[in-house]
Nucleic acid binder design. Structure first.
Lengths: 211, 211
DNA sequence: TAGATTGTTAATCGATTAACAATC
DNA sequence: TAGATTGTTAATCGATTAACAATC
């Protein structure tokens, strides 16, 4: 098995954007693109694009550039969109409901198979064709379905209480909308944090700067 | 007027986190903290914390450390939480509804004063005590209320069509949940992008790595 | 073939960490 | 005062950009 050198986080953060742009360019009917042309469209340097891509393989051809469809597919593979991961979502309040209903999970390699909430006024409700189940059924469900990914749309305290149950059930990948630090507790887990309030505060900072 | 040296984005991204941690530590009743102790709690180096803070002023005292309440307030000021900015939200679908209902705008320096949608089945509905207005009333509303910030919970095409109207109405700060690149179109605007699908794809990448 | 463009090495730039004199 | 801890300068590390030989 090929030992893959650790890819830096700066590179990883750009991958979804490459994937997005290449998807659009592909739809526009173009066949090939050079790092130079792609750099102009994305506002990066051609050097950076070539460096980034060469973390993963030699996708281009000298004198020609990159085949758009191929490159799009390759980056898709790197991002794992072809490997559908069973996913559950916990917390069907406003935010959880929106995430469940609104995100194109399938297109991005996730298969949402269960939604849970501890609030009895939400259980039984249907979201995206899935009946919201009480959290008490979580263990059972995980035992049967073996989900790999959990989306946490919960406040800090609820996340704190729940995570060890999920981890025990074998879930090691988290899309975390709370401020509870899962990675600190379970360093071998993969965590993507979405800190909406942090983002809003940064906007506050930048709006100040403009004065 | 003091010429403020441009603060790097790496620093800005850490500010909300400082603010958050200091708020919690303050609530725990502590009075003072050293960069060393804060670094342990936050998983940073003490050096980095001192470097970061010294972008904005000399908040500490040799031999003592930092007064927690003071530092929390100072960072709050830097993030503009004391300057309530009139804010409108456009797009009251699942996501917009969740954002409007769920975010503590006031605590973070924003005052949500209007919600708009072009879909007649949503207008008239109340969210967070605000009646959803049709987009056709946007110009009028902006003329009267002069909002400074817009939250865009719209798909790409709708954002693309709407942004120039908002910009013309004097709005220069955007919390943007679409993939439409506002900053490219209006480089003098302040934009915070929330690319949820990019975040999800990154989780896909990291979950792959764990195999 | 000649021109274009890659993959990759070297140079530059910026951010993080370490060290320490200043000072509370 | 002595000990602690800052603010800041210097050293290190990592990421970005530039350059160019390899090659399609």
């Amino acid at each position: 098995m090929k030992e893959r050198k650790k890819v830096s986080n700066s590179v990883v953060k750009r991958l979804p954007r490459y994937y997005r742009f290449l998807g659009e360019i592909k739809n526009s009917g173009m066949i090939r693109i050079s790092s130079g042309e792609l750099s102009r469209r994305m506002g990066l340097t051609a050097s950076q694009i070539r460096q980034d891509l060469n973390n993963f393989g030699d996708f281009g051809q000298q004198g020609y550039g990159y085949n758009i469809t191929d490159l799009h597919n390759e980056i898709g593979k790197i991002l794992g969109v072809e490997n559908k991961k069973k996913t559950i979502l916990i917390g069907a309040g406003n935010l959880g409901n929106a995430i469940a209903a609104h995100m194109s999970f399938e297109k991005r390699g996730f298969d949402l198979i269960g939604i849970f909430d501890s609030n009895p006024s939400l259980t039984g409700k249907f979201i995206r064709g899935l009946k919201v189940k009480p959290v008490s059924q979580l263990d059972d469900f995980c035992g049967k379905e073996k989900p790999e990914v959990a989306v946490l749309c919960l406040p800090y305290e609820a996340a704190e209480k729940l995570v060890n149950k999920l981890y025990e059930a074998g879930i090691k990948n988290y899309w975390n909308f709370s401020h509870f630090d899962i990675k600190k507790l379970y360093p071998d887990s993969a965590v993507e944090n979405v800190h909406l309030s942090d983002s809003l505060l940064m906007l506050g900072f930048h709006s100040n700067e403009n004065l």
